[in-house]
């Protein structure tokens, strides 16, 4: 009995190590390599002991000003998309939670069906239109696109979270003479904060990392950080791996920390999003 338990324990330990290596090795490897001096990056077998240096970051700073512009664009676009998505989803989620009618129920179905449309489909008509109205290569286009592809999930999530807030609170506020907007702002929003954070995690991660729309709709002014990194990969005849790893680390660390700190909301959002919508 004891040996069987031991065997199970060892089996589990091996599985856990395998899972950790699988999940963390590629990330750790990039971060570590970005700090390796010169040729140590290419050492076979990889060096795990080395004297760390910031030389690749200095090279990145000196040679790739466009990357830092990209980071700034990514920050602006992520913030804008998140604000739009949260505001729109909370307002709609409130109505869907508190009121019901046949028309409203039908429109929830519509929100779910919309998620079946692949984003690349809308680039075909939007590309010429956005060019024609002169919005190509601007922040606002990406903000709106990123927000829109998450408001359907966002609304369904917000409805689920707002459903858990007792209606009596709305009614009490109403008796005190509060209007709908006041109830939403003063009662619902503070109590639905976990839902808002769940939506925020989805939108922030998506907007910060997205490639396809940024690739199609931006050129120079609104180019995001992932797009600049893709250009570093694309310089086929000479990928400067050290600089690429440094840029990847700078792009990755903020969003990785964000996901780590918000992991509870991410898990809640994924679970509710998959079962309810």
């Amino acid at each position: 009995m004891r040996t069987k338990k031991l065997a199970i324990g060892i089996g589990k330990a091996i599985a856990v190590v395998a899972i950790l290596v699988w999940s963390l090795f590629p990330i750790g490897f990039i971060v570590m390599s970005s700090l390796k001096p010169g040729q140590d990056i290419f050492a076979v077998p990889p060096k795990f002991v080395f004297s760390p240096t910031l030389q690749h970051y200095v090279q990145l700073w000196n040679g790739w000003g466009v990357f830092f512009g990209g980071l700034l664009n990514s920050t602006i676009i992520t913030a804008g998309a998140t604000i739009i998505a949260i505001t729109a989803s909370t307002a709609a989620g409130y109505v869907y939670s508190r009121y019901s009618s046949r028309m409203l129920n039908a429109s929830v179905m519509f929100l779910i069906i919309v998620r079946l449309i692949p984003p690349i489909v809308v680039t075909l008509p939007l590309f010429p239109i956005i060019n024609a109205i002169g919005l190509n290569d601007t922040h606002i286009v990406l903000m709106v696109l990123y927000a829109t592809f998450f408001v359907s999930l966002g609304t369904v999530l917000m409805r689920t979270f707002i459903d858990q807030i007792p209606r009596e609170l709305d009614e009490a506020a109403q008796i005190d003479g509060a209007g709908r907007m006041t109830i939403l702002r003063r009662v619902i929003v503070p109590l639905a904060a976990p839902g808002i954070l769940a939506v925020a995690v989805f939108v922030v991660v998506f907007a910060w990392n997205e490639f396809l729309f940024a690739f199609i709709f931006t050129g120079t002014n609104a180019k995001t950080a992932p797009l600049v990194i893709s250009e570093m990969i694309g310089s086929i005849d000479g990928v400067d791996w050290g600089v690429l790893f440094a840029a990847s680390t700078v792009q990755l660390i903020p969003v990785l920390l964000f996901v780590i700190f918000m992991n509870r909301y991410l898990v809640a959002g994924l679970t509710a999003g998959a079962t309810k919508g």
């Binding site: 590629p26 990392n209 992932p226 990194i229 792009q251 990755l252 990785l256």
Partner: peptide, 9 residues
Amino acid sequence: APYAVSEVI
């Protein structure tokens, strides 16, 4: 953790 990683990276 991989959820946070961009396709590009």
